[in-house]
Amino acid sequence: MDAAAFLRAAEALPLATDPREVLGPAGALVLAPHPDDESIGCGGLIAAASAAGLPVRVVVVSDGTGSHPGLPPDAIRPVRERETLAATAALGLPPEAVHFLRLPDRGVPAAGPEFAAAVEAILGLASPAPSAVLCTWRHDPHCDHAASFAIAEVVTRRLLGARLLAYPVWGWAFAHPIPGFPLPAPPLLPGPPRGRRFAIAPFLDAKRRAIAAHVSQQADRMGDAGAFQLPPEAIALALREVELLLEETP
């Protein structure tokens, strides 16, 4: 099946309401390719896990400075990190649970020495070991999302007993087109999808506040006419009452 059919089939996966059922007893290590992916893709699950007392750590892989190509990276990096700390606080996480690798936006490595160094850096932040590693879907149409997933695969293999779960961000556009958002040809995938949907209605307000905390992604406040802006349709998809966690084999 193609990616659109795969995701539509995934929208019928079993629905969970307990974060322990999805993450396991030792909580989660969440990899976000850019500042804001954690809130958009699995912010409701993060909030639910935090409320349930499960440990959650978030690692932001890239510095996110590509969102403002007209500004020096040193000008936007601290802004995006402050926004991420505000967003994760809205989800119930303390600042010490959030880490920034600061790899270059659109330059997250998919192989080579920098890839190996990223794996080791993340493993150094994964103690005590989580029972689940979360990252963007391998078929999300962004190079940093795919590279971060490749990193997550190796990290999960090194964390014996951990499960790998993928959350779509831009991949949702295959099944729910976003006006003006360009997509490659949909990949062909083996089915059926595996995983869980997670009900986030009790935590939807927290997720809404987390996404809103990424102000630089929703309004040009820094004088960069070429700045990226989250499409309203993408935000609406993120604020549905369920999140999708696809079971992956690392």
Rank of each mutant, 00 (worst) to 15 (best):
A5C: 04
A5V: 02
E11I: 00
A12F: 02
L15D: 12
R20K: 13
E21Y: 02
G24T: 07
A28K: 07
L29E: 07
L31C: 10
A32W: 02
P35T: 09
I40S: 00
G41Q: 03
L45Y: 02
L45H: 01
S50V: 01
V60A: 04
T65D: 15
S67E: 08
S67Y: 05
H68T: 08
P69M: 09
G70I: 12
I76T: 15
I76Y: 09
R77E: 15
R77L: 15
V79A: 07
T84C: 15
A87K: 00
A90T: 00
P94Y: 00
P94V: 05
V98P: 00
R102P: 09
L103H: 06
P104L: 07
R106W: 07
V108P: 03
G112Q: 11
A116D: 15
E120A: 15
E120L: 11
L123A: 01
A126T: 04
A126F: 01
S127T: 14
A129Q: 14
S131W: 09
S131T: 14
L134K: 04
L134D: 01
W137P: 01
R138Q: 13
R138N: 09
H142D: 14
S148C: 15
I151V: 15
A152E: 06
A152V: 02
E153A: 15
E153K: 14
V155I: 09
T156D: 02
R157P: 02
G161I: 12
R163H: 11
L164Q: 06
V169S: 05
W172E: 06
P177K: 04
I178R: 00
P182H: 07
P187Q: 13
L188K: 13
L189A: 10
L189Q: 11
G191C: 12
P192S: 12
P193K: 08
P193Y: 11
A199Q: 10
I200M: 05
F203G: 00
D205S: 10
A206W: 00
R209I: 00
I211P: 03
A213L: 09
V215Q: 13
V215W: 08
Q218R: 15
R221G: 14
A225F: 06
A225I: 11
P232V: 07
L237Q: 14
L239F: 11
L246D: 04
P250T: 11
